[in-house]
């Protein structure tokens, strides 16, 4: 089982990394952004397995992006590894502060509370004109352990970086999902009371899932900020969080790779509908979302699960 997983991960890395050679510039950038957002969505999927959905994952996406930007602008740090690490740490701390609080809520209460936290951050950042207010601020291109590429090499390096993180994070999350804790999460989804009676702490599990989601969100936000070169409070706005939830629903909670496939599909659909229907692209996007929800209520991952006849 484990060796199969590593084989799969290696293959996924090879396939994705090949994109750095075959993809045109715009598509590589689109994929890099989609994968970065996919990381955030993977965090939501982790929570979805336990039956809760965070509508405020933009909180961590935004904290990650702003941590990287402020550190880069204040201390002149441009190393992508260091920035990612710092943002992940910041999100870990914030996640550990809010995790225990949120872990006792379920359903709409969990969703709304997480949403409220992200909107508090959005409101605060919008008011802070020192760091650009609603206009946000720019962040310079990252360096890679002292190497400062430009143009296509920069995009390639960023893409490979995000691919590597995606594969590592995806593999780790798969291992976590298949672990005892991960399976208890799945059991919680079915019957929380029974899990408690069996002696497991549902609150702890929920806290773990939330904190993992926070860290993944922070990493995704950092990469997105570095790729875009700009951050603004919209990162924490509910529409951003809503998009993450949508990708998570599109992917379903059954498969890890499906999350990233869903993220890329969403970006492609949005990009092309924006080009071909400039006046009605929202409508085109909406119809696509509806069709997917109607045809695949359990998400893209269910395509895989159905064939395997195994829903884990």
């Amino acid at each position: 089982m484990r060796s199969k997983l590593f084989l799969g991960a290696t293959a996924a890395f090879a396939v994705l990394a090949a994109g750095s050679v075959i993809l045109p510039d715009w598509a590589m950038f689109l994929c890099a952004m989609a994968l970065a957002k996919g990381l955030v969505c993977l965090g939501i999927v982790g929570m979805m397995r336990g039956g809760v959905v965070s509508f405020g994952q933009g909180l961590y996406y935004c904290i990650g992006a702003y941590t990287a930007t402020l550190v880069a602008n204040s201390f002149g740090v441009s190393d992508i590894f260091l920035l990612t690490l710092l943002s992940a740490l910041a999100c870990l701390l914030v996640g550990m502060a809010f995790g225990p609080l949120l872990s006792s809520y379920r359903g709409i209460f969990f969703a709304m509370l997480s949403l409220a936290l992200s909107m508090v951050l959005y409101g605060s950042l919008s008011k802070m004109s020192v760091i650009g207010g609603t206009d946000g601020l720019n962040i310079a291109a990252p360096t890679f352990l002292g190497w400062a590429p430009e143009g296509r090499p920069l995009q390639t390096a960023l893409y490979i970086y995000v691919v590597a993180i995606v594969v590592i994070a995806g593999t780790l999350m798969r291992i976590y999902f298949d672990s005892e804790q991960g399976l208890i999460t799945l059991a919680t989804r079915d019957n929380e009371l029974r899990v408690e009676y069996l002696g497991a702490s549902v609150r702890n599990i929920m806290t773990y899932n939330y904190v993992f989601g926070a860290v993944l969100g922070g990493i995704g936000g950092t990469i997105a900020a570095l790729a875009l070169g700009h951050v603004d409070p919209e990162f924490a706005f509910w529409t951003t969080s809503g998009e993450f939830v949508f990708v998570a629903i599109l992917a379903g909670y059954l498969s890890v790779p499906a999350v990233f496939v869903a993220a890329i599909i969403l970006e492609l659909v949005r990009s092309f509908s924006n080009l071909y229907f400039p006046n009605t692209w929202q409508l085109a996007l909406g119809i696509f979302l509806l069709v997917v929800i109607v045809l695949l209520p359990n998400g893209l991952g269910s395509l895989v699960g159905r064939r395997k006849g195994n829903a884990a």
Binding site: L5, G8, A11, S255, P257, K308
Partner: peptide, 8 residues
């Protein structure tokens, strides 16, 4: 695992 197929 289905990774290669989805990756493909």
């Amino acid at each position: 695992m289905m990774k290669p197929r989805i990756g493909g």
